[in-house]
Every structure is written in structure tokens, then in C-alpha cells.
């Protein structure tokens, strides 16, 4: 509690009208850049804040703290969920290697089941060693049926079979876990387009959502990832995994402002229940409060 007071005292000093100088704004700049907001977004936030300090004559610690939070929160969006009236609702998870797709698929299956929706998992990563086994362990743990492709087989075929099985078994939601791929690999991006297309053949209108799973520790490259996947398969939103780590996930701002992609869920650990609907306020507090606490410890 003491640390926090000192911290906010310091921020008040940054932004307070009396002692405001270049160096104090630079401290704020450092805080935002270290949270991976990137230079552009950081400067944009600081400009907006300077304007508010001028226009609104903000002086107290509380006002300043709140203004910074408001500025950041306003740059994000509430999660947008797919239209679950489709039976089944088909959701594809895509992303670069190791970002958290398979774990997120399992967490979502559990979450949807808890919400009373019957789920089916599709293991369409036929490439990575033991990717199917990994999802199978999760499927058994959450007691959700799983349809798997053949190792080395066609991921499109796995998606097709999975959706058909879900239709036959009258499931509410189908979650398709795909192989990790770097967005710069042409062939693999063509492959994910095919999985996307084939889903529509299996069930007209599918997929009803395609979510990009992004590792929160990712830096500026997150933007290129989001852009490339959006160009390839029309992304509807982002799952920000590993937000429980020390990373702040600041690239979410650029991804929202430039690509208009909302964050839907946050991954908060390795356990099956460690997935929460994205909470803008908690996210922003994570950036500001945790950073300040850390700076004060140094």
C-alpha cells in the first residue's frame, strides 16, 4: 500500500501542473514503452494526456491517475462474442508457434460447457509432434469429445470431419485447434486459408469466429502477426494468452486501433480455468499499477 502511494505520488509529479517537465513525461513514456505499447501508441497517449492536463487543469493524484487509465481504456473495446444461435457455432483458433492455441481451445471448451453449451474439440494440428495427444489429454480432462486428424494428414479434412461430427451429435460449439505457423510462411498461410474455406463447405456460414491467439509477451511483431492472419482468414478477435506472466501485452492497443480487432479472452495461467473474458480495466491497471510497483522496487 505504501509503495502504491509513493508510486502515484510520483505519477502526480510527472503530470502535476507545477513540476511538469520533459523528464517526467519521459518517465511515463518509459513506462508505456516497457509495457510493449510501441512508440507510436505511447506518443499518442502522452499527447492526449498532455492535452487533458492543459484543458481540464488536472491537479490531484486521483485525477491524473484516472485520466491515464481513461485514455488507455478508451483505446480498447469490450469483447465481442460470436452469435451462438448457430448450431453448431464453429470457432477456429489460429496463431504463430507456441502462442497458446491448444491450451486456449481446451480452456474455451471447458468454459462453454460451464455455460451450458455442449462443445466438441477438433485436433487439426496434424503437423507438430504430439499436438493431437496434447489436445486429447485436455479433452479427456474436461470430458469433451474430440475429433482428430491423422498425424501428417490434411488439416482441412480434420476440420471437415469435426464439423460434420458436431452437426450429427447436435453440439453447440466446435473449437478447431490448428497448427502453429509463422505468418511469413506462404505455404502455411495458404493451408490455414484452406481450413477456413473447408469449414464453410462443411457448414454454410462457418466459421462463425476466427480468433488469433497471441502470446502477451510478444513485442512489436504482434502487429505483423495480426495483420497477416487478418489478411489471410479474416480474424474476428484476439485471445491474449500468458497475461499472467510479467508481460503487459501492450500491443493490444495498436492491434485495436489499426486493425480494429478486439481482445475477447485473456489467458491467465496454465490451468484449465485460467481464462477470463477480456476486462479492459483490469488489463489497464495491470499495465500501470504493476509497472509502477516494479519501478519503485528497483
Amino acid at each position: 500500500e505504501k509503495t502504491r502511494k509513493v508510486a502515484f505520488g510520483r505519477i502526480a509529479n510527472f503530470l502535476g501542473t507545477s513540476e511538469l517537465d520533459d523528464e517526467t513525461w519521459e518517465d511515463l513514456e518509459g513506462l508505456l514503452i516497457q509495457a510493449d505499447l510501441g512508440v507510436e501508441t505511447t506518443l499518442d497517449v502522452i499527447d492526449a494526456l498532455k492535452k487533458r492536463v492543459r484543458d481540464e487543469g488536472l491537479t490531484t493524484t486521483g485525477e491524473l491517475d484516472q485520466a491515464l487509465k481513461d485514455e488507455l481504456i478508451a483505446r480498447l473495446q469490450e469483447p465481442i462474442l460470436p452469435d451462438f444461435s448457430h448450431k453448431p457455432t464453429v470457432i477456429i483458433l489460429v496463431g504463430v508457434n507456441g502462442s497458446g492455441k491448444t491450451t486456449s481451445a481446451a480452456k474455451l471448451a471447458r468454459r462453454f460447457q460451464d455455460e451450458g453449451k455442449s462443445a466438441l474439440l477438433v485436433a487439426a494440428d496434424t503437423y507438430r509432434a504430439a499436438a493431437i495427444d496434447q489436445l486429447k489429454v485436455w479433452a479427456e480432462r474436461v470430458n469433451v469429445p474430440m475429433i482428430a486428424g491423422q498425424p501428417g494428414g490434411d488439416p482441412g479434412a480434420a476440420a471437415f470431419d469435426g464439423i460434420n461430427a458436431a452437426v450429427a451429435r447436435k453440439k453447440d460449439v466446435v473449437l478447431i485447434d490448428t497448427a502453429g505457423r509463422l505468418h511469413t510462411r506462404y505455404n502455411l498461410m495458404e493451408e490455414i486459408k484452406k481450413v477456413h474455406r473447408v469449414s464453410g463447405k462443411a457448414l454454410p456460414g462457418a466459421p462463425h469466429a476466427t480468433w488469433l491467439v497471441l502470446d502477451a509477451t510478444t513485442g512489436q511483431n504482434a502487429f505483423q502477426q495480426a495483420k497477416a492472419f487478418q489478411d489471410a482468414v479474416a480474424i474476428d478477435g484476439v485471445i491474449l494468452a500468458k497475461l499472467d506472466s510479467s508481460a503487459k501485452g501492450g500491443m493490444a492497443f495498436a492491434i485495436k486501433s489499426q486493425l480494429n480487432l478486439p481482445i475477447i479472452y485473456a489467458g491467465l495461467g496454465e490451468k484449465i480455468t485460467d481464462l477470463q473474458p477480456f476486462d479492459r480495466e483490469a488489463f489497464v491497471c495491470g499495465i500501470i499499477d504493476r509497472s509502477l510497483e516494479k519501478n519503485n522496487d528497483d
Binding site: 509495457a35 510493449d36 508457434n97 513485442g219 504482434a222
Partner: peptide
């Protein structure tokens, strides 16, 4: 992971404090 952002510093420092690191393998 080569895609890691600003936290790389804290990660490296944290592992370094706990262990006698002898090298870096930069992936992806």
C-alpha cells in the same frame, strides 16, 4: 522466442538470478 518484447530483460534477469546461465538459444 525472437518475437519477445520488452519483458525479455526481466525474463533474462530472473533466470540469471536463479541459475548460472551459460548461453542463449534464440528461436523462431
Amino acid at each position: 522466442d525472437a518475437m519477445i518484447g520488452q519483458e525479455a530483460l526481466n525474463v533474462a534477469q530472473g533466470f540469471r538470478q536463479a541459475l548460472p546461465l551459460s548461453g542463449l538459444f534464440l528461436t523462431k
